[in-house]
Design a protein around this nucleic acid. Structure first.
Lengths: 210, 210
DNA sequence: GTCTATAACGCGATAGAC
DNA sequence: GTCTATCGCGTTATAGAC
């Protein structure tokens, strides 16, 4: 119990700090002092900083992966037609519900995802692809019948354009919202931004050159 | 002359290394040894690592900012209608031509831009916004007549969704292309990806909830 | 399982010779 | 303007007492 407590406190602090400032910019000293645990605890419980980074991702992605798998199972069993918008809503629901509908944690998730791509942590990228490639490929392949006019290539790139739009705007949501508020005085609650984002993606994904 | 040579070699090495692995992950020692200059040269010529990072961005953004300003001047003088696709093409042309149509350098630019958003600890972001906010706002405001149905808010968010799609897909172009090639054996030259991206953006930007 | 203390190293920056 | 040498600090990781 004492162990589990320490481990969770480290993970909580690491998750928040990594999302806020990045991996290299966050020292184990900062993590352990934020978590109110001893400096040596990270290496004792996780073995290394790299392993801690991976553990943070696993704690995030495991529930999401499970939720999404279940939902995809249900869809397949029922065999009913899923439109693009249905599939997008399903994904949003899986992401937000996987962490107790806590919007802040979803924002952290997006920020971490963005860091996983930009901070050239090769180890992390390979690890995630190996561990979660299956479910993400499965999701993408379910988009196929919803966009019958797209070639595999068009589907691949369009989904990654969509991922980029989502990751960028949500991971920088605070800064963008502040920028827009500075300029116009208008507020954009995150739910509204997500709705706009879904409209944007839903219009772009079906587009093809062929 | 010897000075200019050293400065340029530092900038070249820093630009490539930063784009490849990020700011915090790139040490001055790595930069100077790649550039074949002395370790002390960075602090002599730039003053600090922070200042070097800014200098890398300025070298990238100054030609782009100039080119874009000129093009926007021309458009305004002629007073002719610019459609959304025309404005997107204009931006692509400005970005690629600003650095001698070198695709690798454009990819580096995207990667750096992505880092500036995800990794900047404030100083860089403020610096860039102060220095280049004017021209970017000017560009965005020229989108207004091309998308008359959009509210200011919708225009703001849609352009940032588009920026996210562009930055993410182009800055990770190598990795994404490799991933897609792994799965399907198909090649996607970057010019083709850019065409697909423009189609995606062009479909998404005009979308509004209102 | 948790702590203190410290090893071993890489970092940015600078002083001073040339 | 460029070099060597080094300072001072922060880092991850670990050994060993409790």
């Amino acid at each position: 119990m004492a162990q589990k407590d320490t481990v969770d406190r480290i993970l909580n602090a690491a998750e928040a700090l990594f999302a806020e400032r990045g991996f290299a910019e966050t020292s184990l000293r900062t993590i352990t002092s934020t978590a109110n645990v001893n400096l040596a605890a990270v290496n004792y419980h996780f073995g290394s900083k790299k392993a801690l980074i991976q553990a943070v991702f696993v704690r995030f992605l495991e529930p999401l992966s499970d939720t999404l798998s279940d939902q995809l199972d249900t869809v397949e069993e029922e065999g009913k037609e899923m439109l693009l918008d249905d599939l997008l809503d399903l994904l949003v629901a899986a992401v937000t519900s996987a962490h107790g509908n806590d919007v802040n944690r979803t924002a952290s998730f997006m920020r971490l995802l963005s860091l996983a791509y930009t901070q050239s942590q090769g180890h992390l990228r390979d690890y995630l692809r190996e561990r979660y490639g299956r479910v993400s490929n499965r999701y993408i392949s379910m988009l196929r019948p919803a966009c019958p006019q797209l070639s595999d290539k068009a589907l691949f790139w369009n989904t990654h354009f969509a991922l980029g739009a989502a990751v960028f705007s949500l991971s920088n949501y605070d800064a963008l919202q502040a920028m827009h508020n500075d300029d116009t005085g208008e507020e954009s609650p995150i739910r509204e931004v997500i709705k706009r984002l879904l409209g944007f993606i839903s219009a772009g994904v079906p587009v093809t050159l062929e």
